[in-house]
């Protein structure tokens, strides 16, 4: 019978004792910051790729297609290793550590964040494109007839409307992103999971420590679900949209409730 070491479990799960450990403290911060930056850049890359895919200029379409094809068709882990170690040996870019406002950002964190962002962009491209294509073409015509250029019409008329369509899947992407940052462990970037791995190497309590680690991620995704449903409720209220799924449904991973088939009216 395995003896569960509650002391180790609580020590590394619960602040403040867990936060006394500098690895967990910075690991948590790195995970959150990397998730946000990678998601933000991912949306940007996705927007460019979506516009490229819809462009009248063939080379833009081809570049966007190849980008999406490659980064959705190959494993993120391989992309990350390729970017960090692969580019390193070619000396195209060595990912040197950067010190920014007294905080050291390791090359591994930079490479990992960039890999996450580029990969995410390939997925966001389809989400952004679907959002833009959901908008009535009459909107672009009306904007153009008022003298707007394509760029201004996108920025002022199409994208604000597409955002409504994009926000729910974007929220789900961010939820995934927080969990996917754990892959950075492979290039020894000092994120949260790496911290637990290092502690485990020292005290060897994998059962206790990895349960504690999983609960950290559960806490992050749960908090995000709550924020996300607030955002969506706000969007829906203003524009008179359908009600988004309730907070509990979202946390438990259920879609919007549907009437059972044949319930009648």
């Amino acid at each position: 019978m395995y003896h569960f070491d509650w002391d180790v479990f609580w020590k590394y799960l619960w602040p403040p004792s867990a936060f006394d450990d500098p690895m967990i403290r910075t690991g948590l911060m790195v995970t959150i910051v990397v998730s946000i930056i990678a998601q933000f850049l991912g949306v940007l890359f996705g927007l460019f790729a979506a516009l490229g895919k819809m462009s009248k200029f063939a080379p833009f379409r081809i570049i966007a297609d190849v980008y999406i094809w490659y980064f959705r068709g190959t494993p993120l882990l391989v992309q990350m290793m390729l970017l960090f170690f692969g580019l390193g040996v070619t000396h195209v870019y060595d990912f040197p550590d950067i010190v920014f406002e007294g905080i050291k950002i390791s090359g591994a964190i930079q490479a990992g964040t960039l890999a996450l962002a580029i990969n995410e962009g390939a997925y966001m491209a389809e989400i952004v494109r679907a959002g833009i294509e959901a908008i009535d073409p009459g909107q672009m015509e009306a904007a153009k007839s008022l003298g707007m250029t394509f760029g201004l019409a996108m920025q002022r008329i199409i994208l604000p409307q597409a955002a409504k369509v994009i926000v729910p899947p974007l929220g789900n992407e961010f939820n995934n992103m927080m969990k996917t940052t754990t892959l950075l462990v492979i290039i020894s970037a000092s994120e949260l999971f790496y911290a637990f791995e290092q502690i485990n190497a020292r005290v060897f309590k994998p059962f206790e420590l990895f349960i504690a680690a999983s609960l950290y991620y559960l806490a992050m995704t749960t908090i995000w679900s709550i924020i996300q449903s607030r955002i969506e409720a706000g969007l829906g209220e203003r524009k008179g949209m359908e009600k988004p799924p309730s907070m509990l449904d979202r946390i438990l991973g259920m879609g919007p409730r549907r009437e059972p088939i044949g319930s009648g009216h």
Binding site: G138, E141, A142, A143, K144, G147, K239
Partner: peptide, 15 residues
């Protein structure tokens, strides 16, 4: 186009 006003069948107001 800025000098030419256009009114559409389906209004196309910005919602």
């Amino acid at each position: 186009r800025a000098e030419i006003g256009m009114v559409f069948q389906r209004f196309n107001l910005f919602p």
